[in-house]
Design a protein around this nucleic acid. Structure first.
Lengths: 190, 190
DNA sequence: GTGTTGAGTAGACAGCGTCTACGCGTGCTG
DNA sequence: CAGCACGCGTAGACGCTGTCTACTCAACAC
């Protein structure tokens, strides 16, 4: 092995992301990731003290991607807040649908629980965007509404990805529910 | 072993529920459950072809309990729908808070995915209750609103249990968010 | 040239889920 | 009543897992 081939850390995470997308959460074993990265099963330990730490690093990639995807949708500072919120919501649900395994990994409680991932780092960005949009829409108590909206959004993403919404409503498309949710929080002007 | 001590199946599930509450999702190994039930590690196989099947049976207990708890709250057919929805929501979030491990197990996608648990059996009851309440409140499109409400509820329960809401809003109590959500979907009469 | 250090290897260990062969008591059949 | 089949649980094996530890070996400092 002559190639320095540095940054095994990054390669491990990349291999993990790939394996996750291909084979799902359960297949994300330390040894298989190491195998994919072309190193022995002990190697990851230099960079990640435990398997959970590696999984957390993989999930962090997902958070970064989701944050980026969402940021793309909200438009400039003079865009219509309601339109922006709806676009953001659609992207969120879309992400959960397109990368269900990553979405599942990101919101496994055990990763959050062990403080392997900082709750603040991962969740505050999206929340901040929502608060901004609600302030621009002149909503009262933007923090409370943002939290409610985000929770709703997350619930829709989750239930939609599971197929629960489809079973229960008979419709495959979660968009009506998304619209109802955004309207419920943003259109009420009485 | 002279005691017939029948219904090992139920004993295994009970041991699993106990272990889950004590030690969390990760500790729910087939072998430990068997140990707690006082049988060898191969015994569960007679009743549950795979570990996932056993986990699904344990989760089913949670669904039953949650359904019962929720049913307690909604009152008679002439109770105020908004009050009933709020009470139901509080119970749901309360359940997630009181039994976080069970809640987490219940909504692990892999159990649903493998069709070990029927989506219809587990999710329709709660949804049906919501639809009924919304119909009684004379809401348009009760199915869509019920789905939105349920998803919101679920998201609040999840985020609240993780502590995300607390981190993001600074308040430990999810009740304002719950009220904002219920009001958003039920109070808008304009 | 000789330590020293750090990255990665290799083997061991206990625990896991699954599979298979094997006891053994119960109850039906002749 | 004898014999047999069957259901239930045991026990051991297998490959896989995460973690720990001892080791190799190249690169670098002095």
């Amino acid at each position: 092995m002559f190639v320095p081939d540095s940054d095994l850390e990054q390669r491990l995470v990349a291999a993990g992301v790939e394996l996750l997308a291909e084979a799902g959460t359960d297949a994300l074993s330390l040894r298989e990731i190491a195998r994919r990265a072309g190193v022995s099963h002990g190697a990851p330990r230099r960079y990640f003290p435990t398997r959970q730490a590696l999984l957390a690093a993989i999930a962090l990639q997902g958070y970064r991607k989701l944050t980026g995807l969402v940021a793309e949708t909200i438009g400039g500072p003079d865009a219509d807040p309601r339109t922006a919120v709806l676009a953001l919501s659609r992207r969120y649900v879309e992400f959960a649908h397109d990368e269900p395994e990553m979405f599942a990994l990101m919101f496994r409680h055990d990763l959050l629980r062990g403080n392997q991932i900082g709750l603040r780092e991962t969740s505050t960005p999206l929340f901040g965007v929502l608060v901004d949009l609600l302030k621009r829409a002149d909503r009262p108590e933007p923090a409370v509404t943002a939290a409610a909206l985000w929770a709703a959004l997350h619930g829709i993403a989750q239930l939609s990805q599971w197929g629960t919404l489809q079973v229960v409503t008979g419709a495959a498309d979660p968009d009506p529910i998304l619209i109802a949710t955004v309207d419920a929080h943003l259109e009420r002007s009485c």
